[in-house]
Computed example of a mutant assay.
Amino acid sequence: MMKKTFTAACLFFLVCLVLFSDAHAMDPVTIAILAPIAVKAAEVATPYVIRGLQCGGLHMVKMGTRLIDLFRLPLGLLQATVGIPFNLFSDGVRNSITGAVAPVNLLVDTLLLPLAFCGLTANPG
């Protein structure tokens, strides 16, 4: 059953590749006529593009901190076991909980990344 589904999907992909892979050249006169319009459109869109890139970059930095939080789980387990004589148990439990929740936070941030690049964030401003 799985082999038939895979074969059908590959066949569908190849048919779509053959049918929809036409490239058409544009006339140089048309390009010359449309170039000033494209420049004006780019000037209008520039602030929105820059804002989207800023929001996306900040979101990626936030994702980096979530990625670093993943390493707090083994650190917390080490603190909660070996660090008991040094009064590190509470820090170990806190780091373990933060490290255990970090994959879910990273998943949510990864799913929200395209929205951040569109300029839609949970923290406007």
Rank of each mutant, 00 (worst) to 15 (best):
V49E: 00
M63F: 05
G57L: 03
G64E: 05
I33A: 14
A32H: 11
A38R: 14
L67R: 05
I37Y: 15
A32D: 13
A38D: 15
A38L: 09
R66C: 13
V44I: 13
L53F: 11
G64W: 06
L53D: 07
A42L: 07
L58K: 12
K62L: 14
V61C: 06
I33Y: 06
L58Q: 11
V49Q: 01
A38P: 04
L53T: 06
C55L: 07
A45W: 00
L58N: 11
G52I: 03
I50N: 00
R51Q: 14
A35N: 12
I33T: 11
T65P: 02
L67W: 11
L67Y: 11
A41I: 02
Q54P: 03
C55K: 05
P36N: 04
I33R: 13
M60D: 08
A32Y: 05
L53W: 09
L67I: 12
V61R: 10
K62P: 00
T65R: 09
G56W: 02
A38E: 15
G52E: 07
M60P: 00
V44T: 10
L58V: 06
A42D: 10
G52K: 01
T46E: 14
A42P: 00
T65S: 15
L67P: 03
V44L: 11
G56I: 01
E43Q: 14
L34I: 07
Y48P: 01
K40T: 09
L34Q: 13
G56M: 02
A38N: 12
T65M: 14
V49S: 01
H59I: 04
H59G: 07
I50T: 04
V49P: 02
A45M: 06
A42N: 04
V61Y: 05
I37N: 06
A42C: 06
T65E: 14
K62M: 11
A32N: 15
P36C: 04
V61W: 04
K40Q: 12
